[in-house]
Design a protein around this nucleic acid. Sequence first.
DNA 1: ACCTGAACACCGTTCAAGT
DNA 2: ACCTGAACACCGTTCAAGT
Lengths: 187, 187
Amino acid sequence: MSDAPALRADAQKNRELILVAAEALFLEKGADVPLEEVAKRAGVGIGTLYRRFPTREALLAATSNERFLSLAAASRARDPDLTPGDAVRVYLEELARDTSTYQSLAASIGTVIECGTPGCNAITAEGHRLLRRGQEAGAIRRDVTYEDFIYVVTAISIAIENDRSSKSRIRHLVDLFLNGISVKGSD
Amino acid sequence: MSDAPALRADAQKNRELILVAAEALFLEKGADVPLEEVAKRAGVGIGTLYRRFPTREALLAATSNERFLSLAAASRARDPDLTPGDAVRVYLEELARDTSTYQSLAASIGTVIECGTPGCNAITAEGHRLLRRGQEAGAIRRDVTYEDFIYVVTAISIAIENDRSSKSRIRHLVDLFLNGISVKGSD
DNA sequence: ACCTGAACACCGTTCAAGT
DNA sequence: ACCTGAACACCGTTCAAGT
């Protein structure tokens, strides 16, 4: 599974320094912070950063890895306590909240979450599982796809970033996705 | 209403040239095309472009003005033929389709549509009207806001841009917003 | 009042030289 | 194998000089 041919000790150390600096700066200044600033704070040359993380998305995915792993684990852990429908609801709310951690992350979350790291794989697999379970239980429409999940998470995060709504509206927006804007029984 | 103190003839001409060039380039290369390229194609200096359109959003709003006006007019025209719910559906589909006209426009459509030009005002007023009518007819939930409309249009356009879905999925995504992902009667 | 474009700032990305 | 940072490219934005 580990296709990385083991980094040299100094390279491994630099990789860690870059990740720590990136996490801090993404939080402080958003996901579009200049990469030179990340390299500077990490105390490495800009070339070293590019060698380890060829794209900004790769760096974002790496800093998200642990958060995604724990989100997926938490979702599985609460599974027995929730109905299939509620499990999907909480999954979407948590993922939207997480995506709102870094300013400017929303637009690329779709790419970031499909990057192949263990965390990305875990959170994606968990979403597929919840969707399937909801459909088998007859709670979720058959024509809904996992792409629709990503779309709504992206949407909510962008809405929050644009300051057209606040984090407190995540629940409302997820609710619209789940139940629709139409009054029940009106069609 | 017209707060513009009438441009000098040459300035007016340049403004038109900029708009024509911008429309063409936005269509060819997306809403993030270099502004210098727009100025070059228009045959004016970059300073002239900035003088007329201080921000990219202002330029986007200006090129969208006529499209927004006709979208709003079309919506009012078909109004008698549709139920309040269907009127909202078509409004959202048309707006999402329009926002997908220029690549990279989606993320800023929220800002562009609130810019105060006649077109922006018209399409916004029409959306508010349809929402109110839907709610008064008992077809739309009372807790839905016009911000939710913008959020879903943004979401759909971003989904399309990220190539996670195609324009043919607009109908599906609007349908989810209207009716929700939950199976009816499951709650 | 308006136009121009050089000048400056800023950031992304590569790559030759060095360890 | 890895690191560094100068160098280059590109784009946004301003503003002094000119009409």
